[in-house]
Simulated assay, not measured.
Amino acid sequence: MLRTMPLPFPLMAAIQSMCGRIGRVTGKGLAANIKGAFPRIVLQCVVPLLLIANTLNISADVAAMGEEAQLVSGIDRHLMTAFFVLATLALQVFVPYHRYVFF
């Protein structure tokens, strides 16, 4: 599968960079910018797709963390994935944003 990466990687990097720059310039997220530039129906179609894409991306990342932890520690990947999910949720709920972000 590595041989397929030279084509999509530059495209993914360009899209990520473009979204980041648009957000930095406007001070708004992707959905707010779409709302300002397109009809409401476009926004209503794109937001569920963004939700699905972000959910799948986060779940894939957390599952990969669990599998990597299994390689390092030998503990079952399902337990490690659940640990990472719970630890991340606990940190998001109990640690104030200004404590871990420095501008």
Rank of each mutant, 00 (worst) to 15 (best):
A69D: 02
V72K: 14
L49G: 03
M65C: 06
N54K: 11
C45V: 12
M65V: 05
Q44A: 04
D76S: 13
A64Q: 03
L50C: 12
D76G: 11
A64E: 10
V42R: 04
D76M: 06
E68C: 03
L43Y: 11
N57M: 05
D76R: 11
G66F: 05
N54V: 13
I52S: 11
H78G: 15
N57F: 04
A60Y: 15
D61R: 12
G66W: 08
I75Q: 11
L49W: 07
L71G: 00
A63T: 09
V62H: 00
I58E: 09
T55S: 10
R40G: 07
A53G: 12
L49C: 10
N57E: 07
N57I: 02
I75A: 07
V47A: 00
L71T: 01
L50N: 04
V72N: 14
I75T: 14
M65R: 14
C45I: 11
R40L: 10
A69P: 00
R77V: 07
G66R: 13
L51C: 13
A64H: 04
D61N: 09
A53S: 14
I52F: 08
I52H: 10
V42G: 03
V46N: 01
V42S: 04
A69R: 13
N57R: 02
S73D: 05
S59W: 08
E68P: 03
V47R: 00
E68I: 05
A53C: 09
D61K: 12
N54H: 13
L79S: 15
D76E: 09
E67F: 06
Q44K: 06
A63C: 07
A63M: 13
V47F: 02
P48Q: 01
S73W: 08
L71K: 13
L56I: 06
R40E: 15
A53F: 12
N57H: 10
L56Y: 11
I75K: 12
G74F: 02
E68R: 15
S59G: 07
L51I: 04
P48L: 00
I52L: 09
I41W: 04
L51W: 04
G74H: 06
M65K: 13
V62S: 02
I58M: 09
G66Y: 02
N57Y: 02
Q44D: 15
R77I: 03
V72P: 02
I58H: 04
L79V: 08
P39E: 03
Q70I: 02
G66D: 00
G66N: 03
G66K: 06
R77S: 08
L49N: 06
C45Y: 09
L43A: 05
L79F: 05
I75M: 07
A63E: 06
C45Q: 11
T55A: 14
E67I: 04
C45T: 13
S73Y: 11
